[in-house]
Amino acid sequence: MATPRTHPKVRPYVLTGGRTVTRHRLLVHTLVTVPYYDPGLAAAMLPEARTLYEQARDGCSVAELSALSGLSLGVTRVIVSDLAAAQRVRVHAETYGSPFDRRLLERVRDGLRALA
């Protein structure tokens, strides 16, 4: 068994101002923008959050943010969701559809071994 590395109990993404009332789904093509860019805030962010915050200044989809930052889609979604909850970024709602690639969905669907 691997010895787990201990993580200091840091909170990289402080959630300020409580929860957002309107939640928008972070689909791969959902647009993310920065309503007001604050360089001081950016400097204080952890590297992953800062990268996404800066990339989103130009307005990017979730998929683009993930590709540009080199973070996986899952991690990108978590950090964007935190930044949105803290109102650092805006998530635009006017996109619909499934966030997923059908093939991935089918793989995870229910784990029943499909019959050959």
């Binding site: 993580h7 993404y13 789904r25 973070l71 991690v75 909850a85 995870v108």
Partner: peptide, 20 residues
């Protein structure tokens, strides 16, 4: 909070390493 994501081991690796 709901994040719509088919999670992979690599996601869990990064998220646990971040200490989020």
């Amino acid at each position: 909070t709901v994040i719509y994501q088919g999670v992979m081991t690599s996601d869990l690796d990064s998220l646990t390493a971040l200490g989020r």
